[in-house]
């Protein structure tokens, strides 16, 4: 059985967290579990007014997204146009009206496309206890995290420095065979401080340090990216699922990374 607790603030919600308790974002994953009798969730805590945590705003060179902002909210905000392609890649229109940024960070494999983009954009989380936390740190330990996410801040990339690509079996929309996000700041045509993240290639969205290192100082052309493409396999050990085998994912990852880096087939 599942009981519902409705609270006013995220802090109240966090105070309620405990064994078998889950915080309701858009519910696209949580309610699926409820419908299917998930025995790990016996209490759902929800905010009476989740809209209060659904704002999207600019903060200098960064943007801040409320954890309860939905993909549809993102798509309505001109401040975060660079994230529109990412938000549009999540589910169909109805899912996008429900799916939240906070929930996406906790979405299990093969989901979490939005978190992949956030990871590439150096996202920092503001948690319910007021602390700041790098998204990367949270992802590494998300199974045991008890705090809630209040908002996320991410870099606002310049020009076409940010790229995102998602590969699906079903068209036009489906779950990821893999997704890739890359933030490629350039100085005089050379990449400096690249961040590259993959989705559906590990239990959580992950960065690929070897690829990032291989991109340092190179120009975005076939020769420049060659070593990065070869490094993909070093960083990733993707799982098998009904969409694709881990072997297949590993084989095609460099192909898609190449398309992303050379600007072919981005969306």
């Amino acid at each position: 059985m599942v009981t519902i607790t409705t609270v006013e603030t995220l802090q109240d919600a966090a105070a309620n967290k405990g064994q078998g308790t889950a915080f309701l974002g858009g519910g696209t994953l949580l309610m699926r579990g409820v419908n299917y009798g998930d025995q790990n969730v016996s209490r759902i805590v929800r905010l009476r007014q989740p809209e209060s945590l659904a704002g999207v705003s600019s903060e200098g060179e960064r943007v801040r997204l409320g954890a309860c902002a939905t993909m549809a909210t993102i798509l309505k905000s001109a401040d975060v146009a660079f994230l529109h392609a990412v938000a549009r890649a999540v589910g169909g229109p109805a899912i996008r009206n429900m799916a939240t940024v906070g929930g996406n960070v906790f979405a299990p494999h093969p989901y979490g496309d939005f978190a992949v983009a956030l990871l590439a954009l150096d996202a920092k989380l503001r948690m319910s206890d007021g602390s700041e936390l790098e998204l990367e740190r949270l992802l590494a330990a998300r199974e045991t995290e008890t705090r809630l996410i209040e908002s996320v801040s991410a870099m606002r990339p310049a020009g076409d420095d940010f790229r995102f690509l998602k590969v699906t079996r079903v068209k036009p929309r489906g779950a990821s065979v893999l997704s890739i996000a890359a933030w490629l700041p350039r100085r005089a045509g050379r990449i400096s401080g690249a961040r590259v993240a993959f989705g559906a290639m590990a239990p959580t969205p992950v960065r690929t340090p070897a690829v990032e290192a291989a991109l340092e100082g190179v120009s975005l052309d076939q020769n420049g990216i060659d070593r990065a493409l070869q490094s993909v396999a070093n960083d990733l050990n993707p799982p098998d699922d009904s969409l694709a085998s881990g072997w297949y994912r590993k084989e095609v990852a460099p192909v898609h990374l190449k398309r992303l880096l050379l600007g072919q087939g981005t969306r």
Partner: peptide
Amino acid sequence: GQGTCGSCTVLIDGEPHLSCLTLAET
């Protein structure tokens, strides 16, 4: 009952939602 088929789609405040994934009290 898991958001994948869309046959339960309804509009909430004019926007499409999956009623099977919508907690009724909301």
